[in-house]
Simulated scan of single mutants.
Amino acid sequence: MAMVCQVQIPACGPRQHVKGDPKNTVPVPYHEPLESTSHAVLQVEKPVAPVPKSFSVNIFDGSKGKKIPVMVKSTDTIGKLQKKAQKLKPDLVGCGNLTFNGKPVQLQQKLRDLQVKPGATFITYQKCHGG
C-alpha cells in the first residue's frame, strides 16, 4: 500500500503529481517551482503595517535632560532630522552626534533604512577627545 500526503491546492493553480503506485493512489497537487525540490521550509510572515507619511520621533538631550519631539518622514535623513531639531531648539547646535538603538548613526542614513517607527528616541552624545 502506497503512502499519500494530502496537500491544500495552491493559489497558483492545481497541477497533479502522483506518488507511489498509480493504481492505488490519489493525485496530490503540487506547486510547480517546487517540482524538483527535495526539501523546502515555509515561513509565516506577519503583515507589515504601513508607516504614516509623517510621524513624531524624540531626541533626548542627555546633558540637559530634555526630550525634543520632531516631526519627520521615513524618507528623511539623520542630517535632516538634526536640522529640524535645531530649528526647534537652537541650543542643540553643539550636540551633533546621535545614537539610535545603542548605535551611532550617520548623517546620510535614512530613517526607513534604520527602521525608525513613530515615537522612537534618538540620544545625543559628545565624543571625548584625549586620554
Rank of each mutant, 00 (worst) to 15 (best):
S63H: 14
S36Q: 13
N101Y: 11
L114N: 08
T77D: 00
A2V: 11
V105M: 10
K84W: 02
V51S: 03
K53F: 03
I59F: 05
K103C: 04
R112D: 07
T25I: 12
Q86T: 09
I9Q: 14
K87H: 09
F122E: 08
G102A: 12
C12K: 11
Q82W: 03
I9R: 14
K103D: 01
G94W: 04
P27C: 02
S54H: 12
K66Y: 01
L111K: 13
P29Y: 12
K89C: 05
S54V: 08
K83D: 03
S74D: 11
Q126F: 02
S74T: 05
V4A: 02
D113W: 09
H39L: 14
Y125T: 02
K64S: 12
V105D: 13
V7H: 15
K46H: 08
P10E: 03
M71R: 09
C12M: 07
F55G: 05
V57L: 12
M3C: 06
G79S: 14
K53H: 03
K84L: 15
R15W: 01
H129V: 02
L92S: 01
G96P: 12
Q115N: 14
S36D: 10
K83S: 03
Y30Q: 05
G102N: 15
P90L: 14
K110N: 01
Q6C: 05
A120R: 14
K89F: 03
I9F: 06
V93E: 15
P50T: 06
K19R: 09
V105E: 08
K87G: 01
A40R: 13
D91G: 09
L114W: 09
G130E: 06
E45P: 06
Y125G: 04
I9K: 15
K73P: 00
K46F: 04
M1R: 11
V48P: 01
V18Q: 08
G62W: 00
K73E: 06
G102P: 14
V70C: 06
D76Q: 05
I123R: 11
D76M: 15
T77H: 00
F60E: 08
K73L: 03
D61L: 03
S56Q: 14
T124N: 09
P118N: 05
K84H: 11
G79L: 08
V72C: 05
K64G: 02
Q8L: 08
Q115H: 15
T99W: 00
F60M: 10
P33W: 03
R112Y: 07
A40Q: 10
P29T: 10
H129C: 09
V44A: 12
P118G: 04
V28A: 13
C12A: 12
Q109M: 12
V48I: 07
V18E: 06
L81P: 14
P47I: 07
G79C: 06
S54T: 14
L111Y: 09
P33R: 10
Y30R: 11
G131C: 03
P52M: 00
T121G: 04
K117F: 02
K67L: 10
I68H: 05
D21R: 05
P27D: 01
P33E: 04
N24H: 14
K53M: 02
V51E: 04
V44K: 12
T77L: 01
C128Y: 10
I9M: 11
V93G: 08
K110C: 01
